[in-house]
């Protein structure tokens, strides 16, 4: 474990917590893409499938973190699609999730480290996570704005994988550890946030709201 990975995981936890708090406190999921949250839930379940296969006692933080990610993301989907369904902005959350899931699944079968069920599920979850934020970014571009709290969520969510890139550089240098698939997907994922990062740093940090030219 290194400082980049630690802060990356903390940033990821913060993102999940910020979104849950936003929905719970405002009792509304306006401006939140339910599809992105569904895709994240699928990512966690397919990536941490080992938790269900051979349940080992919760002796280490990694198992606890995996369970937190899975339960928090499923609970977030429950809030969006059931509890606060009336506030879900389905009209603007219109990016076809199939256009992300099918290519990720196909690519996972073609490009993977080992043609093994668990490994392909892991690879699928890595590819899917790289593009899972697209419906959320698409929704913001459609509505032309993002609530400040949603911007903080996106900043934390984007920073998590950006910090993981620093973690991979660190591990390559000191542990000569390389996980090419995760690195390439992680770089693509972070690049997708670039224009949001620009808007966040130039606007939200100065207390302005993100309003896109509609």
């Amino acid at each position: 474990m290194n400082i980049f990975r630690l802060f990356g995981d903390l940033s990821h936890l913060a993102a999940i917590a910020i979104l849950l708090l936003k929905i719970w406190k405002t009792r509304s999921c306006a401006g939140v893409s339910g599809k992105t949250q569904l895709l994240f839930a699928v990512c966690f379940i397919t990536r941490y499938i080992d938790l269900f296969l051979h349940f080992v006692s919760l002796y280490n933080t990694e198992k606890v973190m995996k369970l937190i990610y899975i339960s928090a993301s499923v609970f977030t989907c429950y809030l969006i699609f059931f509890k606060f369904k009336a506030t879900y902005d389905g009209n603007h959350d219109s990016m076809r999730a199939e256009f992300l899931i099918v290519p990720a699944a196909g690519l996972a079968c073609l490009i993977n480290t080992k043609f093994d069920a668990i490994e392909i599920l892991w690879t699928f979850s890595i590819y899917l996570e790289a593009v899972a934020i697209l419906p959320q970014l698409f929704l913001i571009s459609k509505t032309g704005e993002a609530e400040t709290i949603t911007s903080h969520y996106l900043f934390a969510q984007g920073s998590y994988r950006a910090l993981y890139i620093l973690n991979w550089i660190y591990r390559y240098h000191y542990e000569s550890h390389v996980d090419t698939i995760a690195i390439v997907a992680g770089v693509v994922q972070t690049i997708l946030y670039c224009d949001f990062f620009y808007l966040y740093i130039t606007k939200v940090v100065k207390g302005q709201k993100i309003v896109l030219p509609a």
Partner: peptide, 10 residues
């Protein structure tokens, strides 16, 4: 058989 990579990250 070659070892399946241990993806030790979350």
């Amino acid at each position: 058989p070659e070892p399946v990579p241990d993806h030790d990250e979350l």
